[in-house]
Design a protein around this nucleic acid. Sequence first.
DNA 1: TTGTAAGCGTTATCAT
DNA 2: ATGATAACGCTTACAA
Lengths: 337, 337
Amino acid sequence: MKSATVKDVAERARVSVATVSRVLNGSSSVDAELQARVVAAIAELQFRPNRLARNLRTNSTKTIAFVVPDIENPFFISVVRGVEEVAFREGYSLLVCNTHDDIKRENQYVELLTDEAVAGLIICPTDERRGHTQVQQALNSGMAVVALDRRLEDASVDGVLSENFGSSRSAVSYLIELGHRRIGIVAGPDHFAPGRERRQGYEQALIDHGLPIDRELIKLTHFRASEAEGAVEGLLNLPDRPTALFISSGNAALGSLRAVNRHGLTIPDDISIVIFDDPDWASIYNPPLTCVAQKTRDLGVVASELLLRRIRGHEEPVQERRLPTRLIIRESCVPPR
Amino acid sequence: MKSATVKDVAERARVSVATVSRVLNGSSSVDAELQARVVAAIAELQFRPNRLARNLRTNSTKTIAFVVPDIENPFFISVVRGVEEVAFREGYSLLVCNTHDDIKRENQYVELLTDEAVAGLIICPTDERRGHTQVQQALNSGMAVVALDRRLEDASVDGVLSENFGSSRSAVSYLIELGHRRIGIVAGPDHFAPGRERRQGYEQALIDHGLPIDRELIKLTHFRASEAEGAVEGLLNLPDRPTALFISSGNAALGSLRAVNRHGLTIPDDISIVIFDDPDWASIYNPPLTCVAQKTRDLGVVASELLLRRIRGHEEPVQERRLPTRLIIRESCVPPR
DNA sequence: TTGTAAGCGTTATCAT
DNA sequence: ATGATAACGCTTACAA
């Protein structure tokens, strides 16, 4: 048996389909008597409004999308969780789109999402500045967009990021105050906010303490384990090897530790380490890792709440929200020998 | 300016809307001449068919859903990645639904998905046997369903799982052949296939080698870190402490290692450890952990391919696919002292 | 092979 | 406050 329609409900309640629709959406007031009859009919027929018809008619859907560079990165997973939470709570479905940081794939996805008429999208863009034609197009077509973790320069959209600069600055200060003078950093790419800002925070901490900025101690990577491994490799092979490492992402930590282990170095005796992000294994590692914990879940929550506000038509100036982080001191740092 | 419709295209190409639709779907052959005109018109108008209208008309969508108990579990994430991969390749969108292993939430989600008319869903059910009314209902309404990691007993749906029993059996055999006689196991709940089968594999290995099954060495948990921690705590406090531990999930490994560390025990000198799953940190842990690696991504790939086959109407007997695992020997096991 | 026209199940306009 | 009716943009009988 096929499912009931508004028409069936209308007949059963002896009212018009318009009235049924009205009680369904509470769009305008209806007589209590009729209202009751409709409600009863709905229950009796186990009527559920057809979403597809509604979508077509209103030219909108109740789904949002999260466009993410790497779904397997624990950082993003935790964000997804936050997004999913509020989406569910608000009756929205969540589409997850993995771009592998490939602009082409991102564009394909955004195009698809536009076709699907998603109500809005949270995106960690593959490119902060150039083109981004599809996203721009989506924006033009009136779609709500918020950028997460990275920024969207030319477009004027809301953004949600961690307090990268300050967090990085204090983490490195912590190392300096422990007595370290040569601190290596595995930084992210300079063309994305997180990479750039964390590197700047690192440099600022050095400046704050009157320490020199040594370019050979700064390794730019793409926050990938394999690249980080090579970077740390280089750092450890330096004639005047750093006594401490600031690894500016959790993903990079994986590769970095591999390199440290391969060199037969013991943490923290031979080298101190602070990592950005607090993946679940950081606290059980030997030794437990001192880290800068981002409020990952909150990033997702804030982003989706912002997004929903836009979807609902709130008119407020474009804003960029910065979430604080927390320096968790564990056992991977000691004064240099 | 609003976007073009089939009608616009039809006018421009001087054909009927039916013809436009035909070239769009390749449903029946159309004259080459007209075909060309339509294609041209489509390009000129930058026409993109309205998905919402199409959905309503065909009463179907090109989205599939993955209903998962815990999106933050690395195991599921990796599966998601596999699912996303084939979904994207095949032009499907992927909805991700996190149930927290809460049957109520699962039901809400499945109901929502039914309303949204998703083409199919891959589910790791909260309950393998009881009720599962919503899923059953979805099935009745003709939706394609495949169960992943866990089974769906009463319903006849395809399933994809790892070779739990055999893998577990060989992993434990490995420990026994190393000389261990008292091996503790942190098992999952017995009412889910992975928990039950891995425990059975463990027992079988003991039987194979003529060893006794000691109930006090078997700890049932929910594969959660905190629970596993307590379980291992109990194991380590046993008067005759086990010399080796078989931790039957990656998530449980987190808590288990915490307990081991707290007891000041060194791996593998004081105690040997094998874990099920190969989270990315297992290979850089000190010492690198010997583990049973599941083909997580493949689980997702196989499940979605199975699902798409069903969606496309393939008629084949219901099947349960078992994927092999791989025992990766690293450095967390040595003969007992 | 092509065109006409009838829906799909809603919401929304316009009278009443 | 309510009801008749026209869309929304597409696919698909059915006719030609």
